[in-house]
Design a binder for these strands. Structure first.
Length: 732
RNA sequence: GGGCGAUUAGCUCAGUUGGCUAGAGCAGUUCGUUUACACCGAAAAGGUCAGGGGUUCGAGUCCCUUAUCGCCCACCA
């Protein structure tokens, strides 16, 4: 017996060496499995993409849990003899990464505009590369059996080709168009900022109640009178008796030197209790109003420029900053006798996180994907939609879930998905940041060219300054990682659609929905058959992990203390799809004890039996036949539950069988048999113990890959597969 | 305001087509252990499954309702 079994199991000493052994074998790559004749070339395939972690830093416990679940899926299917592929990669995560680097630069008092686009991107790429390296190392620590030879990055060359191909096709199909939309504009920084960078600050303000003109039938209320020059409508609640008679009317008048025409519209979102229950709609300078304008097809009238100055109005308004214009407009209202009431209020004002400037919502030209426009789908593998039929993106997204070609687990999220898609509006795909796929559109005067490069003709072509929403590239992930847009790619034919997408429920609308959109559109097929959604990892008390609570747990610390196997088990047992899991250190400790239990079971068996006991038996003793039957029942149950993704139950069952049946009963009973049993009983039992241990190692392998592989190396015989990872799931 | 979820042993949680004498880990109790394992074994203790009502031969599990807690989305003109 190998003397390592004389001391307790040492995960720290074992795990890195085992991972290295797997990696060197090459068997994470299904092609190598086939070459070594461990997998049949015509075997069923099982493929899954790793949701690419953002290159914004390091992996957290949520990633650890994700890797554990997916590795179980992958290892299980590999043991079933399938051609099994798990594709690794990382996500450039445009805004998240860019703002992270901006923050780091800010500490050195460097601003991105001082560096310029190229220099700044160099810094971001450097940061991304470092994050990437950390992330890959952490994935390996978790034991993830990812095929590193196929690693991808959402911003690498191959993915860029996929992105540009997809963009061009959508543009040619008239599904991509350009239109104005309200964005958060920072007048100090002269840039657009994302919603998460807007800091809400409570400030004293004034609510003005006034009439537009003496002819206008009722007053409205606002905190920003200067924007009223840009009003194109007044919104009221449809059930509000005070205003019902005016709905549909149009009024024109002069307001502080500007000609204004407003239409009275009914909108559910107006609160009749707030203010006077009537709201002047300024589509160009308020995000909320812009949304009302979208619903009612109202015109957009920009009256404030990028420097926060008014572009129209009377003397004292035009060409002044908004704060000053406000005073002028209020003074004008007073002098005209239109001002009815001024009330002091506390209002929540959006300010730029970085410059502190008050956000000025402005309309900017943006690129959009039309989800309601009919186009011809040339090829369709979607049930209920024939090749060559006219469909919209929204219809495709609904169809594949309604017809159950894609199943979402747990089922309650299916409702949520359908509800979300039914309310889906056009997707704004442009972002006013530098890091990401630059929009493949070129301008020369009025001319527009769509493609990766400017046309070769003479003349100054200028590329669009904006970049694409990060979800545009990750939406292509299941097939851009398999060779698309090269339609002859062998991987694409073998491994697409993928079988499972395993990800967090929080990105169902962002990522999952977008992958369905892109795949149904570009391939006429589904991206995956099952969506398995996991929950959040919380601390032992069920609190969300956050910097401010100081309760963030680094998975690597836990691994160093208890080993990866123990951490994986603790994260799996009791963690069903869609449920949040509380990570209790005691639970991890308990499973590290379990690992040691298995270790000691092995020690006992290696002491009491010999490899020759593996030889064919003449007959099993009646007791061992009974035990084998029990075992068969267990395996058949477990196999069924594995197929149903019930890893949380299987993990617990294995724990119980191995500890409380195999060790506590069978091993104890064996001591007596070895001492007092007849020859048949002894031989039978020795054979049984070795076979059972091997069987347990195989079925426990997906959960605790390291220790099972380590033991396998000492219990296997010449007819067994050399590496447990490549073994075959027991028959039952 | 809209949507979703949770409430089971002292603590943290399983219990997924209704069949449980309701389970696990940790903590606590009693006893034991010179070799597979103290990262141990044996035995017991602990619960009107949030409250109420209903469906059913049968409900922790399905329906209604109340209470408490939590999450997501929207919005404050």
């Amino acid at each position: 017996m190998n003397e390592k079994f004389l001391s307790p199991y040492n995960a720290q000493k074992t795990e890195d060496a085992i991972y290295k052994k797997w990696e060197e074998s090459g068997f994470f790559n299904p092609d190598e499995m086939i070459n070594a004749q461990l997998t049949q070339p015509d075997a069923e395939s099982f493929s899954i993409v790793l949701p690419p972690p953002n290159v914004t830093g390091t992996l957290h416990t949520g990633h650890a849990s994700m890797l554990a679940i997916e590795d179980i899926m992958v290892r299980y299917n590999r043991l079933l003899g399938k051609k099994t592929l798990w594709i690794p990669g990382t996500d450039h995560a445009a805004i998240a990464t860019q703002s992270k680097v901006e923050k780091l630069l800010q500490k050195e008092k460097i601003r991105k505009h001082d560096l310029g686009r190229e220099e700044f991107l160099k810094k971001v790429n450097e940061f991304a590369q470092n994050s990437h390296d950390t992330i890959i190392a952490q994935c390996k620590k978790m034991g993830a059996s990812l095929d590193w030879s196929r690693e991808a990055y959402t911003l690498d060359e191959q993915r860029e080709e996929a992105v540009y191909t997809a963009f061009k096709k959508m543009y040619d199909d008239n599904l991509i168009y350009r239109k104005e939309r309200i964005v958060n504009w920072d007048t100090k920084g002269q840039t657009t900022i994302s919603d998460d960078e807007v800091v809400r600050v409570d400030r004293p303000g004034k609510m003005y109640t006034f009439k537009y003109s003496h002819d206008f039938p009722f007053p409205i209320a606002t905190t920003r009178p200067e924007t009223k020059l840009g009003d194109t409508a007044v919104a009221v609640h449809p059930d509000d008796k005070r205003y019902q008679q005016y709905i549909g009317n149009e009024y024109s008048f002069n307001f502080a030197g500007a000609d204004v025409t407003v239409k009275i519209v009914a909108d559910e979102h107006v609160d009749p209790e707030f203010g006077v229950g009537a709201l002047g709609v300024t589509p160009a300078h308020s995000i909320a109003d812009w949304e009302i304008a979208e619903r009612h097809n109202l015109p957009l009238k920009q009256i404030i420029n990028e420097y926060g100055k008014m572009t129209i109005g009377m003397e004292g308004v035009k060409d002044t900053k908004v704060a000053q214009a406000r005073e002028s407009v209020v003074a004008w209202l007073e002098s005209e006798g239109l001002l009815i009431e001024t009330e002091d209020i506390i209002q929540s004002v959006g300010t730029a996180e970085r410059t502190g400037a008050v956000i000025e919502p402005l309309p900017k030209l943006q690129w959009w994907i039309d989800v309601n426009k009919k186009f011809t789908l040339p090829y369709s593998n979607i049930d209920g939609i024939t090749s060559g039929s006219q469909v919209t993106l929204k219809e495709l997204m609904l169809q594949v879930v309604e017809n159950e070609q894609i199943k979402i687990m747990p089922a309650q999220f299916e409702k949520q998905y359908l509800h979300w898609i039914n309310n889906l509006r056009d997707w704004n795909i442009s972002r006013q940041i530098w890091f990401g796929h630059r929009i493949p559109v070129w301008y020369k005067g009025e001319e527009i060219h769509v493609g990766a490069h400017a046309p070769d003709d003479s003349g100054e072509w200028v590329q669009d300054e904006d970049t694409l929403d990060t979800w545009f590239s990750s939406g292509l992930w299941t097939f851009s990682t398999l060779g698309w847009p090269n339609l002859d790619s062998k991987d694409l034919h073998t491994y697409h659609p993928t079988q499972v997408l395993e990800t967090g429920y929080d990105i169902l609308p962002f990522w999952v929905a977008r992958m369905i959109l892109m795949t149904t559109y570009l391939l006429g097929d589904i991206p995956f058959e099952t969506v398995y959604l996991h929950g959040l990892v919380r601390d032992a008390q069920g609190r969300k992990m956050s910097k401010s609570l100081g309760n963030i747990i680094n998975p690597v610390d836990l691994i160093e203390k208890y080993g990866t196997d123990a951490l994986r088990m603790a994260m799996i047992v009791g963690n069903g799809p869609g449920n949040d899991v509380n990570l209790d250190e005691n639970k991890i400790k308990a499973y590290s004890k379990f690992g040691n239990k298995l270790w000691n079971i092995t020690r006992f068996i290696l002491t009491e039996t010999h490899v020759s006991d593996d030889n064919d038996l003449i007959e099993f003793s009646p007791r061992d036949k009974e035990l084998l039957n029990e075992q068969q029942t267990l395996i058949s149950e477990i196999t069924k539950e594995m197929d149903e993704f019930k890893y949380y139950i299987v993990g617990e069952k294995l724990y119980h069988y191995i500890w409380h049946t195999f060790a506590d009963e069978i091993l104890e009973e064996s001591k007596n048999i070895f001492e007092n049993g007849n020859e048949i009983e002894v031989m039978s039992r020795k054979h049984f113990l070795r076979q059972t241990l091997k069987t347990m190692l195989i079925i426990l392998h997906p959960f605790m890959p390291f220790i099972t592989e380590e033991i396998w190396q000492d219990i296997k015989n010449d007819t067994d597969r050399d590496i447990l990872m490549t073994a075959l799931w027991p028959k039952y």
